[in-house]
Design a protein around this nucleic acid. Sequence first.
DNA 1: TCAAAAGTGTTTTGTGTACACCCATGC
DNA 2: GCATGGGTGTACACAAAACACTTTTGA
Lengths: 242, 242
Amino acid sequence: MLPAKPHLKTAESEKISHLDYFNIAVSVDCVIFGYDEQELKVLLIKSDLKEFEGMYSLLGDLVKPDEDLDSASYRVLKARTGMDDLYLEQVHAFGGVDRHPSGRVITIAYYSLIDLKHHRLQLSHNDLHWHIVKDIRKLAFDHKLVLDTCLNRLQDQVMDHPLVFSLLPEKFSLRELQQLYEAILGVELDRRNFRKKISIKDWLIDLGEMETDVPHRPGKLYKLKPEFRLNGNPLPRSVKSL
Amino acid sequence: MLPAKPHLKTAESEKISHLDYFNIAVSVDCVIFGYDEQELKVLLIKSDLKEFEGMYSLLGDLVKPDEDLDSASYRVLKARTGMDDLYLEQVHAFGGVDRHPSGRVITIAYYSLIDLKHHRLQLSHNDLHWHIVKDIRKLAFDHKLVLDTCLNRLQDQVMDHPLVFSLLPEKFSLRELQQLYEAILGVELDRRNFRKKISIKDWLIDLGEMETDVPHRPGKLYKLKPEFRLNGNPLPRSVKSL
DNA sequence: TCAAAAGTGTTTTGTGTACACCCATGC
DNA sequence: GCATGGGTGTACACAAAACACTTTTGA
C-alpha cells in the first residue's frame, strides 16, 4: 500500500477530528397505511414520552450502528405488525433541530401498505391503534408533517404503480378497488372511467368467479397478476419525456 | 406540571438509555448542476481521503448539531460557490453501513442548479472542477448512485416546474433553452413542439430584443417571469388526479 | 449565394372526462 | 317490484407527436 500524501487524511484521522459530530441520532419512522371499512388508516402508537403524553406517534426506532436505513424500517415494520414480505418506500428525511425533545434526532420517513386483516397479532396490547387518516389533526413530534408528506407521495404514485393491492384481499371486485382508490385519493371517481383506466394498465386477472354474500348483483372477482406483486422490491421512478 | 406516570419516560432518561445510538454522523451532499457549452455539468471536488485518492466526490459536509438539514446543505452550497439565493431540493437519504470509511455516516442528498458563469470565485484552487455529467463513470463513496438519483429527480421535475432558468443568463433565446432541456433530459426535442409546450406554460416574457453576435438569424430574447424565480423556495410536489 | 437557425401550423393519435341506460341479484 | 350496484359506449376537449417550408441574418 502506498503511503498517504501529506495533504491526504486517512479515514481514521478524519473520524477523530470530527468526533464532535458523531452525536446526532438517526431514526426511521414508518407510515403504515391500512384499509378497512372503506377508510384509509394509519397505524399509530401512544407516545411513551412525557412531553407528548396522550398523543400518538408513528412507529419508529433509532437506527442501529450496524444496520442500514431500509433494514431499520423493515425491522420496525416487522416487529410491530409481524408481517413479512412488505413493500417500503423511503420518502423524506426530517431534520429540524428541535424536532425531538431527547436531543438531536433526524428521522428518515418510509411508507408501507399492509392488509390490516392479516396481522391482528401484535396489536392487542401496546397502545397500538389504527386511526382514520383524514381525521388525524395532531401527532407527537413533527409526525403530522411526516404523515402528510408520505400521503402525498402515496397519492402521487398510486395511479402509476400497482401498489395498493396489498391493502386488499387476494380476490376483490372492481368496486372494492375503486373504493380503495377513492379513500386514498380523497375524491370520488367515475366508475366507467375508472374501469377503463384500470383495464388499460393490464394489472389484473379475471378469475371467472363472482362475489357472494353481497346484497346486490355480484361483481366479477379479480386478482393482481403475480408479476406485479411487490415484495419489498424497489419502485422505479417514472421517467417523463418531453 | 403534572408528574409523569410511572410508565412514561422523560426525554432525558430516554436520551441516557439510548446514548449508544448517538454515534452515527449525518452529512449532506449537494449535487450542484451547472450548464456550459451545451453540456450539463456537476461540481465535484477531489477527495481528500486516502481511501479515495484521485477520485472525485460531491460537495458535502457533516451536519452540525445545531443546524437543520436544509441549512447545512445551503451552507455547503454557499461556502463552495459563493452564491446566495439558490434553490435546493432534498432528494434521498443514503445510509448503507459501509458507505463511508470513517465510520457510520448517513447522508442526505440535495440537488441545486446554478449558473456556472456567475461564481468563478471559489473555484480556482481547492481541486474543485466542473465535470460533464454524462461522462462520469465513478465517484468516491456511493456518490455515483447519489448523482444518478438526483439526476433522475431533476429529469422528473424539469418539465413541470420552472427550475432550469437559474442555469441560463437572464436573457436567453428559445434555442438556448431547448438545448438546455436536451442536455438535462439526454434526448433530442422537436423544435416546434418544444416551443408550443413552453409557450403554454406561460413562464416567459418576450423582451422584444434579439440575439446579437450569432452567426445566423438572431432569435428573440426572453426572460423568466419574476414570479417564477426560485430563491430557495420549496417546490410543490405535483398532485395527480385520476 | 450559402449556411445556419428562426419562425410557424396541421394532422393524427391517445388520453381525460362527462354522461345514461339496461341488467342481475337479494330482499 | 324495488333498491343496489354491475356492466357497458360515445362525444368532446385537450395534449403529445410527427412532420416541411419559408424567412432572416452573417459570412
